[in-house]
Design a protein around this nucleic acid. Structure first.
Length: 115
DNA sequence: TTTGTGACCGTAA
DNA sequence: ATTACGGCCACAA
């Protein structure tokens, strides 16, 4: 069972799973959309716990500057890189070009989730 | 109760 | 391009 608030974790996962294949989003951006402004760290800890037993698109979430959150060379970083490439996202030196791949939700989609 | 620690972030040197 | 710092907040010790 998750230690972190189930409601928040659920909202975070729902938001994360909205990121389309071939796109990425930052922890802070997801936090904002999930109604948790300024709590980027919580998105990270939520994903860490939930990804173990739930189906979440955790690999599409990266830092605000385009780098992967995991240390270069770590197993986790390699797994994430591979999954991103399967999505069609180009990753070079543990970094993604945000100008090209950062998710920009449509207005209609933003309104759909009331926050 | 206090303290240290993160899959973070924006700003400023 | 790096490093430092303060904010952020739930959790574990």
């Amino acid at each position: 069972m998750p230690k972190i608030d189930h409601g928040k974790a659920l909202r975070i996962c729902e938001t994360v799973n909205r990121v389309p294949v071939g796109k990425v989003a930052s922890y802070g951006f997801i936090a904002d959309l999930a109604g948790l402004p300024g709590r980027a760290r919580m998105v990270g800890s939520a994903l860490r716990q939930v990804s173990a037993y739930q189906d979440v698109a955790w690999h599409r979430i990266i830092r605000a500057d385009g780098r992967l959150a995991f240390a270069r060379g770590s197993d986790a970083a390699h797994r994430q890189t591979e999954r991103l490439r399967e999505d069609g996202v180009v990753v070079v030196n543990g970094r993604v070009d945000l100008a090209r791949y950062h998710w920009q939700p449509e207005l209609s989609e933003l309104l759909q989730m009331n926050y």
